[in-house]
Design a protein around this nucleic acid. Structure first.
Lengths: 136, 136
DNA sequence: AACCGTGTGAGAATGGTTCTCATGCCCAGG
DNA sequence: CCTGGGCATGAGAACCATTCTCACACGGTT
């Protein structure tokens, strides 16, 4: 009956480093990028460990994942409440945005078509002001 | 001045077969699935060719792509007008739905944060009535 | 301080997608 | 109807992100 048994998550240097790095970055980053950054700054962490740490963080709801257009997974430290993202496709900077209307819309449309157990994903991509200015 | 030069798309048995197969399926399918289906029915088509045909169809706007949670690309024959999808995560059946409000919302939110050149992606996942009934 | 079990890491394995390149076939021109 | 140029095809190799393997390290508790 235990809905969410705490999996006895152990606190290690590596996991701390991954979370700390995500905390200071404000955009979505791939596991490979994070691994390279950690390596550069001397915090040697194995690639497999980075993947494991990220998965644990996602499971704990501390990090959001999304798939880039080429299919790579990108991770970002996020607030635990439901939200969507406004992502700069050039620099990766991300803004969390809420949209109550779409929540109701999704539920209604799903119900109309007999769908249950509904989830939705909504992301907005664009070019942020800084990148747009830099480009011209 | 030619905005959309026709890239001299050649009509071959293979491309015809891929498009015909997509026409008779009503859910998102991976390239691997489509390749296997074509092979089963005797229309031998190389895997690389399936990928190339699908990419061409996507470029022409005849087919939509989305990434599954494990990162695989899934393809579906779609109407050329902008729309979103309501997808059964069990059987893959898909319904196209329009949502004018979210279009305006996305544009407004992007503008508020100084983002330009905006695109958005919105997909709704659930369990369709048939699958929900079959499961219990 | 000792122990148990989870975490780590290097490299191998996996699997989807793309690339290579020799050959095939669509189709416009003669 | 025949021919030629060039895009299309396909088998397999290459690529690359992610996961797995397994021996060893170390966190946390007794």
């Amino acid at each position: 009956m235990s809905a969410a048994e705490v999996p006895a998550r152990r606190q290690t240097r590596q996991r701390t480093a991954v979370l700390a790095l995500l905390d200071e970055l404000d955009g979505f980053r791939t596991a490979q990028e994070l691994h390279a950054l950690l390596r550069e700054r001397g915090d040697g962490v194995g690639l497999a460990t980075v993947y494991r740490a990220l998965q644990a963080l996602v499971d704990d709801g501390l990090v959001d994942v999304l798939r880039s257009e080429v299919g790579e997974a990108a991770y970002r430290r996020c607030s635990p409440v439901h939200h969507h993202h406004l992502v700069c496709r050039s620099c990766g900077r991300t803004v969390e945005v809420a949209d109550p209307p779409v929540e109701r819309w999704a539920a209604r449309v799903a119900a109309e078509h007999g769908f249950a157990d509904v989830q939705h994903q909504l992301e907005v991509f664009g070019t942020c002001a800084a990148c747009a200015a830099a480009r011209r």
